[in-house]
């Protein structure tokens, strides 16, 4: 195994051009665990060095570690090397609260200080906590190589279980997210209250400008899933003016979200429980977005949920 430490974007892209299949190391909270647990063999004998992948460390690139706010276009650009801890802090937390909420559920403070949003994208685990939020916000992923750069909607970037549309030689440089007018939130089921991998997760965005509900689910499919039928249904059912929705509509919405999930049974949970839980989470997130009980019957009552 050989390790290249890049100190500038140019260096990183040149190294990637020379080693298009290099493993990209940033916070190391996914990659090093895979290596230490033996899920990824880097080869340690001299015979393996020729065939083992090169590791490219990009954690020193200031371009990746910064973020910018563009109020004119109502969007935020977040470098791939921005950590969970930074996402939890202001001003990003106030601009993208669902991402802050998701970031807060990642690991421990030590892990949040090391782990990055770009790493979450690069690993593309179905359980990646940042990904449902990026999907529900319809973020754009920026990729660069020595010869080109391109942008991809996050939904096109995430291809499958730990599979992305990133091509050999490309580096994830960051994402652009809209600052939306409306409520957004993230909810997660895990084995305890902290330091857990999501058994199932749900992000919901209520975009008042577009009058559109967007929902994305984690850990219930090969990659993050959107729920178009449920989104259409609820977008039409809510009272955008007053922030209300009827309990019957919520139940229908929960059912549609559950139906959109494609979970599997594994050691963390049964598929049935995963399906059920995303339905409950979606209803509860929607109730937080639209706290008033409205629509037939009874208008303007507050709900107990």
């Amino acid at each position: 195994m050989s390790v290249i430490i890049a100190f500038s974007m140019d260096e990183a892209l040149r190294a990637l051009a020379a080693h298009p299949d290099a493993l990209i190391l940033s916070g190391g909270t996914d990659l090093l665990v895979e290596i230490n647990e033996g899920h990824r063999r880097l080869g340690s004998s001299s015979a393996d060095i020729a065939t083992s992948p090169t590791v490219l460390a990009v954690d020193r690139l200031s371009e990746l570690r910064s973020w910018t706010i563009d109020l004119e276009r109502s969007q935020v650009h977040i470098g791939a090397g921005v950590t969970w801890s930074e996402l939890v802090s202001e001003p990003l937390a106030g601009l993208i609260p669902a991402l802050a909420e998701a970031s807060r559920t990642v690991g421990s403070p030590q892990i949040r200080n090391a782990g990055t949003l770009g790493g979450n994208l690069g690993t593309c685990s179905p359980a990646g906590d940042g990904l449902p939020v990026l999907a529900a916000l319809e973020a754009v992923v920026h990729l660069r190589s020595a010869t080109h750069q391109r942008d991809l909607p996050v939904a096109e970037f995430m291809v499958g279980v730990k599979r992305t549309a990133r091509l050999p030689g490309e580096l994830i440089t960051g994402v652009t997210l809209p600052i939306i007018n409306g409520w957004q939130g993230y909810s997660k089921v895990g084995v305890r209250n902290a330091m857990v991998i999501a058994t199932a997760s749900t992000a919901l965005v209520a975009d008042r400008t577009k009058r559109q509900i967007r929902v994305a689910l984690g850990s219930v499919g090969p990659t993050v899933l959107r729920c178009s039928e449920a989104e259409t249904m609820l977008s039409a059912a809510v009272d955008w003016e007053n922030g209300g929705v009827g309990s019957d509509q919520l139940r229908e919405f929960g059912g549609l979200v559950a139906a959109a999930s494609r979970p599997i049974d594994d050691h963390r949970s049964s598929a049935a429980y995963r399906r059920h839980s995303v339905g409950v989470m979606a209803q509860r997130l929607a109730r937080r977005a639209f706290p008033l009980e409205s629509g037939p019957p009874g208008q303007g009552k507050s709900s107990g949920i």
């Binding site: 647990e37 084995v191 305890r192 330091m195 857990v196």
Partner: peptide
């Protein structure tokens, strides 16, 4: 074993 780390083995913490 499917619970051989403390992410999958839910050792309790003060948060619970």
């Amino acid at each position: 074993p499917v619970t051989s780390n403390l992410a999958d083995y839910a050792m309790i913490s003060a948060a619970e």
